[in-house]
Simulated scan of single mutants.
Amino acid sequence: MRGGKYIAECDPTQETSKSLAEMMIGTNLTTPRHDDGSKRGPVRLKVHNLSLDSHEQFGIDLNLINFDVRGGEVMGIAGVAGNGQVELLEVLSGEMLCDEAEHLLLEGTPIGKLNPTERRELGIAFVPEDRLGHGSVPDMSLTDNAFLSSYGQKKLISNGLINHKKSTQYAEEIVAKFDVRTAGVTHTASSLSGGNLQKFIVGREMLQDPKLIIIAHPTWGVDAGAAAAIHQAIIDLAENGAAVLVVSQDLDELFAISNRIAVIAEGRLSVSRDIKEISIEQIGLLMGGTEGSGSQKEAQSVA
């Protein structure tokens, strides 16, 4: 079924995952077009010797995290849930502050003590894991949700007042470019399905043309067609010069879009490896912690 209508029937033993997905979404699926990473620019984000105690009772402490992300590339971080991803995302977004500002550098500028708003003003965008309540305010309209994280970059304030016309136009642009299925931008975030809300939040952050974007689980809960579109949008954003950091448990996703991959396990991050130099089996071993974290080697490699 598709859109409430009977479409077709088939023998699943005679079909592939791709052909079944194409029946479900009503269009052809395309594999994301990926460059070889040869156009990588200077380092945008550098994380240096980051250690941080979790504020959650059952959280994971971060231990000597070291990595960098360059303009023009997508870096993926893989890992089994509950190995420090939440804490790493919080410290990168500014929800948790570093002990020393120099643990995080954006184009050489220490940002470890800056709050989320100050980091956004420097050109950082962020797609959180929890889209309803963290990435959006459920009872606010799509227009207001578009405004919340974009008013600075998109200049949605005029003379100290919200420019409702520009905010509405921006929300409509997101809906159009990311195929968000909604009755209108005056409707609330909670009125959208999970997949459509995910597309809206991803689009809202990407259309700000960030220097650096940090994305947690970019295609969680979206259909195969939307996932392919989001993957291509991530790759296109990197090819236009942005630095992209993706945290995901989906290894197929990370291998489809990343130039480099590192693995987080028990609060430690492995050495990042070029996508052509590592296999899913090696990633699996690192996720299980059987090959060690490589934190000290990574520290030397990015020093």
Rank of each mutant, 00 (worst) to 15 (best):
P116S: 00
R181A: 11
R2A: 05
V271F: 11
S248G: 01
I157H: 08
G195F: 04
I157T: 15
K166W: 01
G241N: 02
I230H: 03
A226M: 04
G26C: 01
T168K: 09
T13S: 03
K5Y: 12
G284T: 02
L97Q: 14
F200E: 01
K199D: 02
G160R: 08
M1N: 07
V185H: 00
S191W: 07
D36F: 07
Y6K: 07
F58R: 06
H231M: 14
H134I: 06
L254A: 09
D68V: 06
D209R: 10
A8L: 05
S293E: 03
A299R: 07
N259D: 13
E277M: 07
I214W: 00
V137A: 15
N159F: 14
E56M: 12
G160E: 08
R181V: 13
D36C: 12
C98R: 14
E239P: 02
Q153E: 15
V127S: 07
H48C: 08
V69F: 00
L148V: 15
K155M: 14
F126T: 09
I257L: 04
G37K: 11
V127C: 06
I283T: 11
V86I: 04
R2T: 10
M140H: 15
E298A: 14
L197F: 01
H55F: 02
V175C: 00
G108F: 15
F67K: 01
D209H: 09
A176W: 13
A303E: 13
T182G: 02
A242P: 13
N196V: 08
P110M: 00
E291S: 11
D252A: 13
A299H: 04
T188Q: 10
S54E: 00
V244H: 01
A233I: 08
I124H: 12
V86S: 01
Q57K: 10
S136A: 13
